[in-house]
């Protein structure tokens, strides 16, 4: 829902003022031609046109910050497991559990570490670098979540059928990237150059993954009891 809201906002902020809005539909399928959900799909203009707005600072709209992507900690798991956001934005962590979590990111250049008490919300620092952010909780080792920080406003995630829809300001040459933390390829992604035409109907792309995704680790402790200690 929030994602939809954000996409709408992106539309309102970036697309409406432009006269030419191009919709790009990307379908991601596995080697057995079955749609793959939750894949990150983004488009980067090859020659960055002047009229594409790239966020450098979060935009404050009422209480919520545009591009503050919310990641919940619920039942000792990161929800959603995968998030995509734009460089220059922040992550907002919402602890919906009745215990403290100690969120960290120690890989790549976007590093942070803080505790969030039960029911509280905290924001990450502004994400200044692109790339994968692997998150964990130093209290509950099985918790695991990923954020991909991209340098383009054109990003989405595939739905249950493996389909992602992106609205571009204008046609042209784009680098189409498909990413997933369990995609066993270089940098966990595959990429190709596409040319987005000004005719909507031509802008459908089907991306077949060369390999199956690796198993997504279950964010669940082996012991199900609620009152465990670190014995």
């Amino acid at each position: 829902m929030l994602r939809l809201f954000l996409l709408l906002l992106v539309n309102v902020v970036f697309v409406i003022p432009m006269s030419l809005a191009q919709q790009v539909k990307v379908e991601v399928i596995d080697p057995n031609a079955i749609g793959v959900e939750h894949m990150v799909v983004y488009l980067e203009p090859v020659n960055k046109p002047q009229n594409v707005v790239i966020n450098s600072k979060p935009l404050l709209v009422e209480k919520h910050v545009v591009g503050q992507t919310v990641i919940a900690q619920k039942d000792k798991a990161f929800i959603p497991y995968i998030t995509v956001t734009q460089k220059g934005q922040q992550l907002s962590f919402q602890n919906q559990d009745d215990i403290t979590h100690h969120i960290y990111s120690v890989s790549g250049k976007n590093r942070f570490s803080f505790k969030i008490k039960a029911g509280k919300e905290k924001s990450s620092p502004v994400l200044e670098h692109t790339g994968e952010v692997a998150m964990g909780c130093n209290i509950h080792d099985w918790m695991s979540g990923f954020v991909l920080v991209v340098d383009t406003p054109y990003y989405a995630q595939t739905d249950d059928n493996g389909i992602a829809t992106l609205d571009l300001a204008t046609g042209g040459e784009y680098q189409l990237v498909v990413w997933h933390p369990q995609l066993p390829t270089k940098n966990y992604q595959i990429a190709q150059l596409i040319t987005v035409s000004n005719n909507d109907e031509d802008n459908e792309w089907k991306i077949k993954l060369p390999v199956h995704l690796l198993a997504i680790p279950e964010q669940e402790n082996q012991d199900e009891f609620d009152f465990l200690e670190g014995y």
Binding site: F227, L228, E229, Y231
Partner: peptide, 25 residues
């Protein structure tokens, strides 16, 4: 990752006594 513990504590042996106050669930 490393951890250090100092004081009086149980040696890490039991696979049963994992809950509050060394109880077994």
């Amino acid at each position: 990752r490393y951890k250090v513990k100092g004081g009086v504590f149980y040696p890490q042996i039991s696979m049963e006594n994992i809950a509050t106050a060394w109880s077994t669930p």
